[in-house]
Simulated assay, not measured.
Amino acid sequence: MHARAVAAMTTALLGTAAFLLPSSEVRADATGTPPTVLAHRGASAYAPENTLAAVDKAAELGIKWVENDVQRTKDGELVVIHDDNLRRTTDVEEVFPGRAPWKVKDFTAAEIARLDAGSWFGPAYAGARVPTLERYMDRVERHRQRLLLEIKNPGLYPGIERQTLKVLGNEGWLDRSHLGRLIVQSFSADSVRTVHDLKPAVKTGFLGTPAVADLPGLAGFTDQINPSYGSISTGYVAAVHAFTGPHGKPLEVFTWTVDDAANARRVAGYGVDGIITNKPDVVRDAVRGR
């Protein structure tokens, strides 16, 4: 282990560095730029999450990065939705009242395409649909945005990593020009490892706050450690940065989900590389980001 990694691990384990910076301080990363701002499920404070409208809203706000969630239908189609259950963000209980518990995996793509995924958010979005991954990628490409794609619940969908990469390839997102605009992440280390093994050129992220002692193993197949903002400190971020990922660069930290200016400035002060937020305009303004 490098000396800098040992030093950073010691700082993180002491756990005191989190409180050494004023909450209003914003620290730029090593390149001198503020953290990257990523629109969580699109600009989901302003449009229904994971819909094309949320992608459009992020673009309207000038946000370059969007985050989304991918799951699989009964007939094998990849769709963009956060929950493994359709109840919270669609009218599935009205359209299919006898189909409880309304799991994504129990409905075909055609059935899901019938659902209203916007009215729950507001009448202006009535009729919005759960997009397929292909349609979502098309909209992201139209706006020339960048994508942080989360593979949700991979244990429910064996082989979803290979299938996701196939769709990305078919949509042209695995060529050299797109690889710099794509990150694939998951809460499952096995899923992240599988993506890396299948397509080593793809940048990957592991969601969560692993112990510092686990970072050396994770650094073999992930480029990022992406924790919740309440679980990190200056020392923890420094510990992550001390390790080199599979593409020869220091591991990055994209933290979630920060929706107010004070916490945005606080985590920026920790030295994070990215902030995932439902309110990307608020966070961007707070950290003087792009």
Rank of each mutant, 00 (worst) to 15 (best):
K64I: 11
R114L: 13
V80S: 06
D106M: 05
V92I: 12
I81N: 06
R87L: 15
K105W: 05
I112G: 01
D138S: 06
R72H: 02
L78R: 01
W102D: 03
E134A: 11
V130C: 01
D69R: 08
G127H: 15
E93Y: 05
V66K: 09
T73N: 02
E150V: 10
D69I: 13
I63K: 10
S119W: 06
T73A: 03
A117C: 10
V92G: 06
T90N: 03
N68T: 11
T108P: 08
L149Y: 04
T73Q: 01
A109K: 08
D75T: 03
H82V: 13
I151K: 00
L115D: 00
A113Y: 02
A128F: 05
R139Q: 12
R144K: 14
L133F: 06
V70L: 15
V140R: 05
G118W: 09
G127Q: 13
E93F: 02
H82C: 09
E93D: 08
W120I: 06
V104H: 03
L115C: 03
D83S: 11
E93S: 10
G127E: 14
D138T: 05
E134L: 05
A110Y: 04
R142L: 07
D75Q: 05
D106A: 12
L78N: 01
P123I: 04
L133V: 04
V92Y: 12
G122Y: 05
P97V: 14
R139V: 03
R142H: 12
D91N: 15
T73K: 00
D75L: 05
Y136L: 08
V80P: 08
S119F: 08
F107D: 00
P123C: 06
R129Y: 03
K64C: 13
V95F: 03
D75C: 08
V95G: 08
E150Y: 12
P131R: 00
N153K: 09
H143Q: 09
L147R: 05
T73V: 02
E150A: 07
L86G: 08
R146A: 02
W65K: 11
G118T: 10
K105F: 07
E67F: 14
P123Y: 04
H82R: 11
V66L: 09
T90Q: 01
E67G: 15
K74P: 06
R88M: 15
A113M: 02
E77Q: 14
W102P: 01
L78S: 02
R135I: 00
R135G: 06
P154V: 02
E111W: 06
R88Q: 14
E94I: 07
N68E: 09
D138Q: 13
E94S: 13
A110K: 15
